[in-house]
């Protein structure tokens, strides 16, 4: 398509009437997103950066306090910034790889040339269609320690029952396990990745006598490393947005065991009106995400295209 437009362009004088008409019309067409970026992204970003150096409660004007918010985050444990960061990082460390592995496994299974795969694809994708609030209430009900179906089943099987979300030790692991329910979109992305692996590679390897496991390990996995990379980054960013289950099911408890970073930020801003501190928290989150993404990008040379080059 770009070839087409360069041809049109070459046929007319540079900066002629057509050039200016294109420029004006072009900007008119993208005006919504230009205004949107200025009004709802770049503008607020600058304001937020400024607010992060102030004490601000919306009703009074902001007072400049330098780096105090940033210092407070690390030195005042009662703000629980580090605690909530720890919860989020632990969650990410387990939930992101688990989700990735489960989604890949599901995609590999569904990618088999067998009948009825559409049904399974639908079944595994369905939970992500359901409103998060509804999902969360069903989880809460299933995991209810006294009346829930899960404990009832465990009791019926003669297994020990659990307190799940109502005990500090098990609350976060339970939420990590529940996050597996959201593998749907990742699975679809992997499925597309798997279907993009050239069939000829498999055939060549089969002639060399490779078994399924070797095929997966030496062909499929290296071939889909770009997909894995993409999923890893989006998963990481997504973890920092984690909110609804913690807000509704545990309110960050028990004993702050599920006090996610985003939940902490929400409470600082909208419960306590610490708008300056919350802005600083948002920028710390942004910085962490940027650094992690950068590290992943740097490391990607080592693992994303490695096997392909060989």
């Amino acid at each position: 398509m770009s070839v087409q437009s360069t041809q049109i362009k070459a046929a007319r004088p540079r900066h002629g009437r057509q050039y200016w008409r294109d420029a004006v019309q072009g900007y008119l067409f993208i005006m919504p997103v230009v205004l949107g970026l200025v009004l709802f992204v770049f503008g607020p970003m600058l304001v937020s950066l400024y607010l992060s150096f102030t004490e601000y409660s919306v009703l009074q004007s902001p007072i400049f306090i330098g780096f105090r918010n940033y210092v407070d985050m690390f030195t005042r444990p009662q703000l629980r910034v580090l605690q909530s960061l720890r919860v989020t990082v632990v969650f990410a460390l387990f939930s992101v790889p688990l989700t990735l592995a489960a989604a890949l496994a599901a995609a590999v299974l569904i990618n088999q040339k067998l009948r009825g795969m559409r049904f399974f694809r639908t079944a595994l994708y369905l939970p992500t269609v359901v409103p998060m609030v509804a999902t969360v209430f069903v989880w809460g009900w299933l995991l209810n320690p006294q009346k829930g179906l899960i404990n009832a089943t465990l009791q019926f099987l003669g297994l020990p029952t659990g307190s799940w979300l109502s005990e500090p030790g098990t609350a976060l692991p339970t939420l990590i396990a529940l996050s597996l329910w959201g593998i749907g979109p990742t699975m679809i992305i992997f499925l597309a990745g798997l279907q993009g692996v050239p069939e000829s590679l498999y055939e060549a390897a089969k002639i060399d006598g490779a078994n399924n496991w070797r095929l997966f390990w030496n062909i499929t996995l290296p071939q889909i490393t770009p997909t894995i990379f993409f999923v890893l980054i989006t998963g990481l960013i997504g973890t920092f947005q984690y909110f609804v289950p913690a807000f509704i099911l545990t309110q960050g408890g028990p004993l702050y065991a599920t006090y996610f970073y985003n939940l902490n930020l929400y409470e600082k801003a909208f419960r306590w009106q610490f708008m300056g501190l919350a802005s600083a928290m948002a920028w710390l989150m942004f910085a962490i995400i940027l650094v992690l993404t950068l590290i992943l990008f740097r490391s990607s040379d080592a693992w994303v295209f490695y096997e392909v080059k060989k």
């Binding site: 970026l37 607020p44 970003m45 607010l51 985003n262 948002a282 989150m285």
Partner: peptide, 24 residues
């Protein structure tokens, strides 16, 4: 430039713009 800016905005966590927008 604007297309890149649009795509890059995906990377920004919504929390960064949340408070100024709320105030606005």
């Amino acid at each position: 430039f604007w297309f890149l800016a649009t795509i890059a905005s995906v990377m920004l966590p919504p929390q960064v713009t949340l408070i100024p927008l709320y105030v606005f």
